Amino acid sequence: MNKLEQLEQEAFENAVKVHNYYLGEENLKGIYIDGNIAINTSVDNGAEKACVLAEELGHYHTTVGDITDLSDSQNRKQERQARLWGYNKLIGLTGLISAFHAGCHSRHETAEYLGVTEQFLQECIDCYTEKYGEYAKIDNYIIFFIPNLAVMEEV
């Protein structure tokens, strides 16, 4: 089962319906409303669809109320929380370590290995940089976010 199928299964298990629907503009990729996720029909590849679905499931799990007004700081915080949920679901620190062990040497290879878009991977790295700083330690690994994504194993 690929990541998109896993997310669709999770949505199903949580009674969240996923619809392919034209949302009126190309820039709006997805939206979550009351147990329904609409993914724009302009999203036409599996990796991008998985990224959109992960964020919208993040809204299902973390968002309370209508947060469409992003001039409100509380709404921006909830938007960030939903995105972080999606990043952790599809990538996570352990996913970056797994990509390292798989021999991924570039962002393109890492994104492909993880089944996400390069843009989603970059946004994840940016978010992790805000959260952890220049690097994060997990078990005997150091994951550097700045200046470039890199993983080192401590011996």
Results as ranks from 00 to 15, higher is better:
136 A>K: 09
65 G>W: 05
41 T>L: 13
78 Q>L: 05
2 N>W: 00
42 S>E: 13
71 S>R: 14
132 Y>F: 15
127 C>N: 10
117 T>Y: 03
34 D>E: 15
84 L>M: 15
90 L>S: 12
110 T>I: 07
15 A>L: 09
42 S>A: 15
4 L>T: 03
79 E>M: 10
3 K>V: 00
75 N>W: 01
50 A>W: 06
132 Y>S: 08
53 L>E: 00
74 Q>V: 12
133 G>W: 02
93 L>Y: 01
155 V>W: 07
65 G>H: 03
149 L>T: 05
117 T>F: 02
115 G>P: 07
64 V>S: 15
4 L>H: 00
144 F>E: 09
60 Y>D: 03
38 A>C: 11
140 N>T: 08
6 Q>P: 03
92 G>E: 00
27 N>R: 15
115 G>I: 05
75 N>P: 07
135 Y>S: 15
131 K>G: 02
136 A>V: 12
7 L>E: 05
123 E>I: 00
109 E>M: 07
37 I>R: 08
145 F>T: 04
2 N>Q: 00
116 V>Y: 02
139 D>M: 08
11 A>T: 00
138 I>C: 03
134 E>D: 11
63 T>E: 07
46 G>Y: 13
68 T>E: 14
137 K>T: 11
102 A>Y: 10
136 A>S: 08
100 F>K: 02
39 I>M: 00
79 E>F: 04
75 N>S: 07
141 Y>L: 04
51 C>Q: 03
128 Y>C: 03
155 V>F: 07
21 Y>T: 14
102 A>M: 09
71 S>D: 11
143 I>M: 05
118 E>R: 09
132 Y>V: 04
58 G>N: 03
4 L>G: 05
22 Y>T: 08
115 G>F: 06
12 F>C: 13
20 N>W: 12
88 N>Q: 12
60 Y>H: 15
53 L>N: 04
83 R>F: 15
65 G>F: 04
127 C>V: 03
100 F>L: 04
54 A>Q: 04
96 L>I: 05
